[in-house]
Design a protein around this nucleic acid. Sequence first.
DNA 1: CTCTTAAGCTACTAGCAGTATCTTAAGAGA
DNA 2: TCTCTTAAGATACTGCTAGTAGCTTAAGAG
Lengths: 202, 202
Amino acid sequence: MTTRRRGAALEEAILQAAVEELTEVGYRELTMDGVAARAGTAKNVIYRRWPSRAALCIAAYRHMLPSGPDSTPDTGSLRGDALALLTRANDRMSSPVGRILRQLLADIQSDPERMRELRDQVARAGVSHWLTVLARAASRGEVGQQALTPRVATVAVDLLRNEYALNGATAVSPEVLTEIVDQVFVPLATQAPAPSDASSRD
Amino acid sequence: MTTRRRGAALEEAILQAAVEELTEVGYRELTMDGVAARAGTAKNVIYRRWPSRAALCIAAYRHMLPSGPDSTPDTGSLRGDALALLTRANDRMSSPVGRILRQLLADIQSDPERMRELRDQVARAGVSHWLTVLARAASRGEVGQQALTPRVATVAVDLLRNEYALNGATAVSPEVLTEIVDQVFVPLATQAPAPSDASSRD
DNA sequence: CTCTTAAGCTACTAGCAGTATCTTAAGAGA
DNA sequence: TCTCTTAAGATACTGCTAGTAGCTTAAGAG
């Protein structure tokens, strides 16, 4: 090969190769030699830019995320909005991107620094949509103030994430999604303000 | 070494060595050579009994679980029982046993067979306690029938598990536990039967 | 045209899962 | 007590991968 890429062009080629390897074989099976070969370069060139396999793959993961901000669904009912948001989340989690993210998260547990950045990226993606949906429902009088907490707002996605942690890579069924929405999210959001709370402080 | 163990005694020694290695360095860092050395035997002896590192570690994990069935807390209030159960779950999840289980689960994702057995073991451990606590609260008139679903029963532990998936190994704070109980579990369990449900079917 | 930088190449270390082979102790049966 | 089968133990090996080192040479700036 007589031509030689440098700088940004080379970096882009490596990231692209890493994205393709991630998509095809996943994080666990990705090898640095594989990425180097696919990018038409050598391993040490990769190590000049990223300190480890994990770091490269995190960068590649970022690189493969959809860029444009997506819209908040507006079906007219809280239940419909919630189902739409949860279905969208499920689609992402069951896609290659979701699989890669879970493998990355699992492999990074011992590195709090990287954990934080990845988790923030995960979290930031969704919360605002749920708060928007809840706020709209509140303005319709569908939900009370007590539901407007981060915990309640993210409860559906949190439960969905738990399904994946327990079930492995297989996609979660629509039935489970409606179960989460109908048995947990909607009841929580639309509950009466204070039925019999503060029952005891021991 | 002139004495040579055989059969069950040897198997027990290997499992014990694996348990110690798991406790000290965790699943990720456990090596077959390490287990063999600690057990005073050789790698191939281990492979005559378990087909892989993962299989050995699952057996060792089972071997290190507490055997006796634990009691269901009875504080007199649903909130108190829930906090007690969730605190106990948190203690387990933040212990070496919990760390090992999470590493195992993460490493087994691609093996549905092993996934199922491990997950069932995880699930079986807790659900009945929550159902008991809910049933007692129902008999006191504290909760309605709609709360007696597996989904609602396990919602607190599911959310706690999600915290560990996102936060890594660091223990979840008591504040988060009370947040889960007060903002999610208790409201769900004590809600009025059907406030304004079935809002629309589109 | 020259000189610095970094890309590309090749070879290396170190660690680990899993396999193979051979020797020899354990223990069962005669 | 002797013998014979089984499996424990020791050792060495394959194959794979992360990460490192050093050398050669193209790119591109001045």
